[in-house]
């Protein structure tokens, strides 16, 4: 019996250590963001701030274009999501439900894309976008975001569409519905669970994306949140409290989102991993 208690205690200690390792850096950042620079360098890493320095947040907020970056991120992520879902939804439907010769080959072409690292297309895309003169516009980042979100989306959506019973389409056809009506008003509405999964996976990766934005954009008014956060940190190197505040602000939207939808997000991320 004693052995069991010891084992249980051991298990709890182990799990708690992991919780502390995972959460403490974030808590530390929160405290850090409310301290003065002299408190931060004083070595009292565990202490609460003597006075909560909301000034750090005011500083970050006013000099950091925060709302502009958030707006850009919402816009870019939103467009990417809509385009990814419509494009890959249609092609997945064609791959799984239409009778045509090249369905499997097309599927394979999309699957190879899952393995291709996005970094390896940076230079050619830059040259292409320069020729299209869309470098330093949001189109230059939305295009690669959509292109690289498509493979996983096609994979997840076609996995689901393959399994829906064909009676659904049959009865719609007897009623004389066109294929477009069948797709948009009958098939899409029942495809909600995999669409959720794709939305969550795409949202997390596009909302957080940094390198493409940093390579293809330079105007401050176009930057997305991660790029904006990095630029802010680069500019205010010695103002520790404000940097901390800006990092907290940078993490805030996605953490809020996670608190509201944590169940859906964890489920979506597992589904995405299982299928990807």
């Amino acid at each position: 019996m004693d052995f069991r208690i010891a084992r249980r205690a051991g298990a709890w200690i182990f799990m708690s250590i992991l919780v502390v390792t995972q959460l403490y850096p974030l808590v530390w950042l929160l405290l850090y963001s409310f301290k003065t620079s002299s408190e931060i360098v004083s070595g009292q890493f565990f202490a609460l701030p003597k006075r909560f320095m909301w000034e750090n947040y005011v500083d970050a907020f006013t000099s950091g274009n925060y709302l502009k970056y958030i707006g850009n991120s919402i816009w870019v992520t939103g467009i990417t999501l809509v385009l990814t879902l419509v494009l890959s939804g249609m092609v997945s439907y064609a791959i799984t439900r239409f009778k045509w010769r090249y369905g499997n080959i097309v599927m394979l072409v999309f699957l190879v894309g899952i393995m291709i690292p996005i970094q390896s297309t940076l230079l050619p895309l830059m040259v292409i976008f320069k020729n299209m003169s869309i470098l330093n516009t949001h189109a230059a980042i939305i295009i690669p975001y959509v292109a690289f979100s498509i493979p996983l989306a096609v994979f997840i959506l076609s996995g689901f569409l393959r399994g829906i019973p064909h009676e659904i389409e049959e009865s719609a056809m007897i009623d004389g519905a066109s294929i477009y009506r069948i797709f948009f008003s009958i098939v899409l509405p029942i495809t909600v669970p995999p669409i959720m999964t794709v939305t969550i996976l795409t949202f997390i990766s596009i909302w957080n994306e940094y390198i493409i934005a940093a390579t293809f954009l330079s105007a401050d008014s176009l930057k997305t949140l991660p790029f904006g956060v990095n630029s802010f940190v680069g500019q205010y190197t010695a103002n520790y409290g404000s940097i901390g505040a800006y990092l907290v602000l940078g993490a805030l939207p996605v953490i809020t989102f996670y608190f509201i939808l944590s169940d859906k997000i964890t489920k979506g991320m597992v589904a995405g991993a299982v299928k990807g």
């Binding site: 494009l87 890959s88 249609m90 092609v91 439907y93 064609a94 239409f98 097309v106 072409v109 999309f110 894309g113 291709i116 390896s120 297309t121 230079l123 050619p124 895309l125 040259v127 292409i128 295009i143 690669p144 959509v146 292109a147 690289f148 498509i150 493979p151 096609v154 797709f183």
Partner: peptide, 20 residues
């Protein structure tokens, strides 16, 4: 149904790799 997605994907994932 097929071409918008396929062409977009080929143009911005595959073609760049070839160019590279």
């Amino acid at each position: 149904f097929v071409l918008p997605c396929l062409l977009f994907y080929l143009a911005f994932v595959f073609a760049p790799i070839m160019v590279s």
